[in-house]
Design a protein around this nucleic acid. Structure first.
Lengths: 233, 233
DNA sequence: GGCCGGCGCATCGTATACGATCGTGGTCAC
DNA sequence: GTGACCACGATCGTATACGATGCGCCGGCC
């Protein structure tokens, strides 16, 4: 029993949910790791019931997988699933960003460019290139661009998918640092398109290509499987 | 309701989950309806715990909403959310179908055309036009076309979104029967594109237009709000 | 007559308890 | 030596029990 007392805001199920999600994001719980209800419950000072519920939620999100009478484990991000998710994300995010393009304010664009410049700075200054920080900035950049999408559901889907990829996304630039430079350049190009009021379709297309490029770089580094055509790009 | 006994294949949580999902799809449980744990548990002949888990899952899918210490109710499908979901679906499904186009067998196309012909038959023969049956066929038609999508995640997303729209999709053709004829014609056109080996992008575009048309018809019937541009179509 | 505070019911949230199932290691027969 | 069977421990699945919370009703006070 750690800090019972004031369940003022969050139910234990939700506590467990957020805790687990955090642990997974932080790589404290790595893919494949078994999640034993009893242990987690003990760790969090609660009974197993809330933990079960939390795990069900995470299962629905695809972060953990469950096997009857066996238990849960953090989802393995096998190459295929990762690629599929990434591709799906690129499609959805491209659409969301395209739809958001006309809604962006000057401030949004300024902030996006600012972030991109920080990415550039990272790229040239940071002596030990920090992929984690770089990826965080990358996410921030894209988030600014799609957030204004008038279709709230799309934004939800984008963010769910992003969560699903989870920590894996951290590792992209770890493996393909060369891609980072290209990304920054492409970001600038995207901003240009938006500012010039380019056709929505062009913006979407550009986004897809951008993502497909990143994915391709990642994949070619790992293994050259039969690549299922990066999107319809 | 009460066939306990052989938990051979499905855990009670899953039974509850599927039962609820079915009830919602069948309109037995209409949007806004309160879901009381105890009652459901009694109805299904189980205790509340599995029901809770089932509801959590449904919540994660967006089919029900939950409020702490108050309970769950079937999600209200307000106009906005519906439109957003439909638009998202159209985007994702268009992409999935486009990616599946090259994978379709002659048999697939034949079956799709068969379904479309049955839709046409419904349209001209069925004296009291049955929107429910028609919509079921519509779903079947599209399912055949996107199922072969090599990206499993996209298929998952499409089907999740479809579930999310739930019964609501049933009502589309209830309200806009005129749209039905157009749909059948557009279906044929889509099949033609696929058969001719049209560019993937064209197929995707066509799908988006098809969906956008349906959505537009639905929306214009209900109320003419500020329409947020049907996709990037 | 209308507003405010307390009581009780309905329902949820969580803990605990117990039966069911799976995985594993040891033993026996072949 | 190898394979199958059995017994055991670990863990899950569900039921039941009890405390906590929110909501509506009723009576008192202004």
């Amino acid at each position: 029993m750690t800090d019972v007392g004031a369940p003022a805001t969050l139910s234990k199920s939700q506590q467990a949910y957020h805790w687990l999600k955090g642990q997974i994001a932080n790589q404290q719980l790595t893919p494949g790791r078994r999640l034993v209800l009893g242990s987690i419950a003990a760790e969090l000072g609660m009974s197993v019931v809330p933990v079960r519920e939390a795990i069900r939620q995470l299962e629905a999100e695809g972060l953990v997988t469950y096997e009857r009478n066996v238990g849960a484990h953090v989802s393995m991000v096998d190459e295929n699933r990762y690629r599929a998710s990434m591709q799906a994300l690129s499609l959805i995010e491209a659409a969301a960003t395209a739809m958001a393009a006309r809604e962006l304010t000057a401030g949004d664009l300024r902030r996006a460019r600012e972030v991109n410049e920080r990415m550039y700075a990272q790229l040239v200054d940071a002596d030990p290139f920090d992929p984690h920080a770089f990826t965080a900035l990358n996410q921030q950049f894209h988030a600014i661009l799609y957030r204004r999408c008038p279709n709230a559901r799309l934004v939800e889907l984008v963010e769910a998918e992003w969560a699903r990829l989870g920590n894996m996304r951290d590792s992209i630039f770890t493996f393909v640092p060369d891609r980072a430079g290209t990304s920054v350049a492409e970001h600038e190009e995207i901003l240009g398109l938006i500012e010039r009021g380019a056709p929505i379709d062009d913006i979407e297309q550009q986004l897809r290509l951008h993502r497909a490029g990143t994915l391709q770089a990642f994949l070619s580094r790992t293994l050259s499987e039969h690549a299922t055509e990066g999107g319809t790009a």
